[in-house]
Design a protein around this nucleic acid. Structure first.
Ligand code: SF4
Length: 531
RNA sequence: GGCGGC
DNA sequence: GCCGCCAACATA
């Protein structure tokens, strides 16, 4: 395809069947539809591929480390500058470089496509990597360029009419945390929901009858889906054609060497927030469900937690990415009344055991909502359990009040809890409080989320909170994605969003404020077990 | 917290 | 009083 002096490619170029080189790259974005047909030396061939690999791997690992948008940009800019500079159309002096840079981008993509088409595993890695890169570039392109690209590719989706928009206004506003007002101004596309699984997964899109309603702001996802689809197909095709290419003994060794690069690969650190440090836990409190936040607050207040509290909270923390090492530090510091060796004697073993480092070595999963609600009802002095299930009504109200839940929502949640729909109450709590964190203060009421049956939709899905860690992850990712979209984070700000090294929360911010409330929590009356 | 060992 | 060992299970 693109070896050196190859009669065929010369011919093609001559015939003009390939893309014209001079103005072949109007934008930095590229769907890589046609392979480049040109001459290139083996050395260049390999160098191009390796350079692109650098960019792809930096991006993927940077993403996995959950850096702040700023940190991510910084590391990416470094890598891009070094390995694959791509100047924009605005830098007019360098119009010559445009074509060179974009050509390199084009070629290197195709080399890797070849190198990574051999096995399913390689293909899916490459697909992920390229999608990430495409998205990264697209997001950072000015909108005029984005549009130019979309138009040039003849991409278009069905727009939602104003009438339909009015009809769906409340659903749309609920799913996107936007006011109905904003919904009217926004352009929406109606597409098959398979096309935007990303958005669906993040629950940021309204679904109905197999269709997803995607706001203009999330158009990237549509473009990306197109990109992904095409590339996936292309990879399959190349993969099938590859065996017949073995004759080209010049290339195969090089290609195989290239995809070896990827061996520094997949490590399954499932932790959403990355490696969390003991001192970072406080700043992550904003993403925790009420049960865990309560445990945390009480632990800070009493410098202690009883057995089931440690169990419930400790496993939860492990689930959000606190390593064993950090956990030991965390608990040691939390129980500040104890000397280090008192601590080691009484608690260290159990911490290690929970992390699968003692005895049978089981790496225990954090407790699910069902487990917390059904087992180990808290007794006097206990701080664990599910607030919606185990706390007295006044204490429940205090929690809601401490989070600025308004009267309407408070009553709603209270009645759900009293109706024994604990997880639904929690889901509603999630929605209301997250909306507030995003700065949405109105219009998430009545019909929008709360339908007639007393059933609650979890932002565009009909699911509910099933697991404390799900609550956390969902909230964490939601804030992360909103933040990187450059949207302002609302009034309850002051917590710095997810970052590699979160700063401690401003002291007192979320401790139960308004004198009197505190007393309620430290009292031992917060367990009215209903059978 | 439970079980178990000295 | 000293110590070991156990439990859990969402999810895309
Ligand atoms: S429903 Fe689950 S997550 Fe929410 S408070 Fe109860 S236990 Fe915690």
């Amino acid at each position: 395809m693109f070896t050196q002096t190859n009669k065929k490619s010369r011919q093609n170029i001559a015939q003009g069947t390939s893309i014209a080189l001079d103005n072949g790259y109007p934008t930095r974005l590229n769907f890589y539809k046609d392979p480049p047909l040109l001459e290139i030396s083996i050395e260049e061939f390999e160098q191009y591929a390796l350079d692109r690999m650098q960019v792809l791997t930096t991006l993927l690992t940077a993403q996995m480390r959950n850096l702040t948008p700023e940190q991510l940009d910084r590391t990416m800019n470094e890598a891009i500058k070094k390995y694959m500079p791509m100047s924009s159309n605005r830098a007019q002096e360098a119009t010559q470089d445009h074509q060179y840079e974009r050509r390199k981008d084009h070629i290197s993509h195709f080399i890797l496509r070849l190198a990574y088409s051999r096995s399913q595993e390689l293909r899916s890695w490459f697909l992920r990597a390229e999608c990430a890169l495409f998205r990264y570039r697209f997001d950072r392109e000015v909108s005029s360029e984005q549009i130019r690209f979309i138009v040039s590719q003849n991409l278009s989706w069905k727009k939602v009419s104003d009438d339909d928009k009015r009809r769906l206004a409340s659903e749309l506003s609920a799913s996107s945390f936007k006011t109905t007002q904003k919904v009217q101004e926004e352009t929406y596309f109606e597409v098959d929901f398979e096309k935007v699984t990303g958005l669906v997964g993040r629950r940021q899109v309204y679904l109905k009858g197999g269709k997803a309603y995607v706001p203009m702001a999330d158009q990237v996802d549509l473009v990306l889906d197109e990109f992904k689809g095409r590339l996936a197909n292309a990879l399959e095709v190349t993969g099938r054609a590859l065996p017949r290419m073995d004759e080209d003994d010049r290339l195969m060794p090089v290609l195989n060497n290239i995809n070896k690069q990827y061996l520094g690969r997949e490590f399954t650190t499932s932790a959403i927030a990355g490696e969390i440090q003991a001192q970072d836990v406080d700043s992550l409190k904003v993403h925790m469900p009420p049960c865990m936040e309560h445990l945390h607050n009480e632990m800070r207040r009493e410098k202690h937690l009883k057995h089931w509290g440690r169990m419930q909270y400790g496993l939860f923390l492990k689930g959000i990415g606190l390593s064993l090492e950090q956990a030991l530090i965390f608990w040691q510091m939390a129980f500040e009344k104890l000397t280090p060796d008192q601590f080691n004697k009484q608690y260290a073993y159990n911490v290690r055991h929970s992390y699968g480092m003692e005895g049978k070595r089981t790496d225990y999963t954090p407790y699910s909502c069902r487990y917390i609600i059904q087992n180990n009802a808290p007794g006097p002095g206990d701080r664990h359990g599910c607030p919606f299930r185990h706390f007295s009504a006044p204490n429940q109200r205090a929690i809601l009040a401490a989070h600025d839940v308004d009267d309407f929502d408070t009553e709603d949640i209270m009645s759900l809890a009293q109706g024994k729909h604990y997880q639904i109450a929690c889901t509603r709590y999630y929605e209301v409080t997250r909306a507030r964190m995003l700065g949405i203060t109105d219009n998430l009421k009545g019909g929008s989320i709360h339908d007639g049956e007393g059933n609650v939709g979890m932002v565009a899905s009909q699911e509910s909170i099933e697991h404390p860690n799900q609550f956390f992850e969902q909230s964490f990712l939601l804030m992360k994605s909103r933040q990187s979209q450059g949207e302002s984070v609302g009034p309850t700000d002051g917590q710095n969003g997810p970052s590699e090294t979160p700063q401690p929360t401003i002291k007192g911010q979320y401790v139960y404020k308004k004198a009197g409330a505190g007393a309620q929590f430290s009292s031992n009356s917060n367990h009215d077990m209903e059978m």
